[in-house]
């Protein structure tokens, strides 16, 4: 790796002021499993000058139920989330998503905040030494559009960028209705992702830090489920993933939330599917119709129409599992 500066901080305030000192030229390092890879390959729109290590701040890896919600510290490790009995029982989709993320080692290092903030994996974007100066790097072109786009967006672009958000936990958190607490504000996680500017992944300001994930307690009659489709059973990023949470009222659906990821620049809330199932029983016919509706707006690229079929299947599977 080429040199950069590195600071350990002891408090969140110190972290914020360190970020401010660098005025956009510094980044947080949590587990490092994403950002270190980016330094190795030198793939940045703007290369950070410094990393601010927040692992030296004590007690940020908690997982607890408090104030009627699940609170997860930003440094909670994916492996701990995956195996936490409370999360497995009540916030099932999140435990499943964490369990299916990457590999055991990455989960032992990777944090929840790093997971929801991670950069896209578009292989043009990640091609070492900025081989492709694409839109996400401030350039003019998207090389995926007519290139190798088998893993790219099926729901169109953000300012012509067709990359997808690769996070496994984000859709689970969205399905569970989570909020992200930052050093400045509390955001619905669905609003946490940047919708306008492809050079950014999240709406976080340069000096803003994720300080907590808050998940409301699910209603009594609800269930959640996460499914991931990838080629290998471990290590692989999702080709498509999906999480659903459904609250039942007897045999029929009272409310539902469905979220796909790896299909668009941001996690893709399948609003139409969720609305469709409300008031219906969760049978094959209903979930098939819901999945078809959700993918109605899909705009496949030259090589990724198959992802539509997979996305439909995952919507069906997660909804049926919530019965």
């Amino acid at each position: 790796m080429k040199p950069f500066k590195h600071y350990d901080v002891n408090t969140l305030d110190e972290a914020v002021s360190a970020l401010q000192n660098f005025a956009g030229k510094a980044k947080i390092i949590a587990g490092g499993t994403d950002i270190v890879g980016m330094f190795k390959d030198e793939v940045f729109a703007e290369r950070p000058e410094a990393l601010i290590n927040i692992k030296t701040i004590p007690n940020l890896d908690y997982i607890k139920e408090e104030d009627g919600m699940l609170k997860i510290g930003p440094l909670a490790l994916l492996e701990d989330i995956a195996h936490d009995e409370l999360i497995k029982g009540k916030y099932t989709a999140l435990a499943e998503a964490a369990r299916r993320t990457a590999s055991p080692h990455i989960r032992e290092m990777g944090t929840i905040s790093g997971n929801i903030c991670q950069q896209c994996r578009c292989w043009y974007f990640r091609s070492p030494n900025n081989r492709f100066n694409c839109i996400r790097k401030g350039g003019e072109d998207c090389y995926a559009e007519e290139g190798e786009n088998r893993y790219h967006s099926i729901f169109g672009n953000v300012k012509d960028c067709l990359a997808v958000n690769p996070s496994d936990t984000a859709p689970a958190l969205i399905a569970l209705g989570a909020k992200v607490k930052t050093s400045k504000r509390v955001l619905e996680i669905a609003d946490f992702y940047e919708k306008e500017e492809p050079k950014k992944t999240t709406v976080l300001d340069d000096d803003e830090i994720v300080v907590e994930i808050q998940v409301p307690q699910p209603a009594a009659n609800s269930k959640s489920k996460f499914e991931k489709f990838a080629i290998r059973k471990s290590i692989d990023f999702p080709i498509v993933n999906c999480a659903s949470q459904v609250e039942m009222d007897g045999d029929t659906v009272k409310s539902a939330r469905v979220c796909l990821n790896a299909v668009f620049a941001n996690p893709y809330v399948a609003q139409k599917a969720a609305e469709y199932v409300v008031g219906k029983t969760l049978d094959e016919e209903t979930v098939t119709a819901a999945a078809d509706l959700a993918l109605q707006d899909a705009k496949p690229l030259t090589k990724n129409a198959y992802k539509i079929t997979i996305a439909k299947s995952l919507i069906k599977k997660t909804l049926l599992a919530c019965k």
Binding site: H6, G32, G37, A102, S103, H105, I106, E108, M109
Partner: peptide
């Protein structure tokens, strides 16, 4: 792999199997 994708560089740190290729020594 040098990218966190193979486990060949695994060491145990504070009881956890971690990837030394993705860990900054200074930390």
């Amino acid at each position: 792999c040098d990218k966190g994708a193979c486990g060949s560089c695994t060491v145990i740190m504070d009881g956890r199997p971690i990837l030394s290729c993705m860990t900054l020594a200074i930390e």
